[in-house]
Computed example of a mutant assay.
Amino acid sequence: MRKSRNMGANHSHKTPVFDENEDVNFDHFQILRAIGKGSFGKVCIVQKRDTKKMYAMKYMNKQKCIERDEVRNVFRELQIMQRLEHPFLVNLWYSFQDEEDMFMVVDLLLGGDLRYHLQQNVHFNEEAVKLYVCELALALDYLQRYNIIHRDIKPDNILLDEHGHVHITDFNIATVVKDSEKATSMAGTKPYMAPELFQTFLEGGPGYSYPVDWWSLGITSYELLRGWLLVKEPECRPSNLKDIQNSPYLADVNWDAVLEKNLPPAFVPNQKGRLNCDPTFELEEMILESKPLHKKKKRLAKNKSKDSGKESSPLNGHLQQCLETVHNDFTIFNREKFRKSRAEDGQTSKIENETCSQMHEKTQDGQNNNVLEPFYTSVPS
């Protein structure tokens, strides 16, 4: 291990002179202190001996990279970062190697990453997040113009400078696509990954492109505003009305007014001659559907006439049994009669309790599906 004098405690004030034609190497930098550690790389603050400028230096052990099949990612990150320079990126300044390590010297951002500040319970207000979104949007647009998908936008990879501006870092899993090409590999951090990325991996979809970064930006901005992400464990997330009503964000809501529909919605759909639905649904029903609903009456009458006077062909016995069970168990309901009966009998609570009890008995643990289960498990699709 290097002695303390080599870590910056006692160094010569004489500025060294390096040959301009010499490649920058490890000797050109003074190591000051470590500030980060990853799975196969570390980050430290360095000062360039001749210019006295401060940087962050990431160094990655070659053997570990090889053992973990990460060399390709390191090379790709270098190739990508060499092409880029933007006010809201962590820009690469130098890269070099020795027998043990590969080195990347980049902008030094001393404001910490947004994950750190979230863990410190920093509250980001809407004004702050709005500026972050604007700055990050400019950076993502710049990357898109260079055909780059970052694929790992999240608070951990967004660093603040001393003035509080944001900078995107870590291009380790970034990829380059050209023209109409799509990326297809599974890459990213799951809570921030867009749906089409999962679809591509699980269902063999058409691939994904730049929009996945904008999805991640949306998730990140939500997390910054709320202070947390979507929570998997049911016991750790809001699970009833009281939890929602106790949220500070909804502290000023008049819930009685909400129930009575006395609060005017911010958006009112246009009702002038419009159904506010996609007209292709109706066209598909009329043109493509083999048994369209609007011809059901005529179709059933025709089938009934065709079958009259002759014995109909028997259905599969098990299928027939299931159909009969569904027919017998189906609940017929008429709200007008229900309301009239309730008003006449004055037994609102009794009727409601009986109805809820019956529904609970039928739906508890999916019991209402049991009659069909043998059919779906025994009849091939």
Rank of each mutant, 00 (worst) to 15 (best):
L263S: 06
Y210N: 01
M193L: 06
H11N: 10
T189N: 05
E235T: 15
R72D: 10
V129W: 02
Y210F: 14
S378C: 07
A251W: 03
F88L: 05
V133K: 01
D69S: 12
R342E: 09
S378K: 13
H11K: 11
Y55G: 02
M186H: 06
K48M: 11
N147M: 06
V17N: 08
S349Q: 11
E354L: 13
N353I: 01
M54P: 00
L114V: 04
L275S: 09
D365A: 14
F124H: 07
R33S: 11
F267A: 07
D141C: 03
R226G: 02
I148G: 00
A251V: 08
F198P: 00
D179V: 06
S290T: 08
T169L: 04
K297T: 15
V43N: 01
R2L: 15
H167I: 07
L131W: 07
K296Q: 10
V71N: 01
A266K: 09
A183D: 04
F281Q: 07
R145M: 15
L138E: 10
N353S: 13
R145I: 06
Y208Q: 04
T377A: 06
F40E: 02
I244V: 15
H86R: 08
C65V: 03
V43I: 13
K62Q: 08
R33C: 11
S349E: 12
T15F: 06
P234I: 09
I219Y: 00
G218S: 03
S308F: 15
L202M: 12
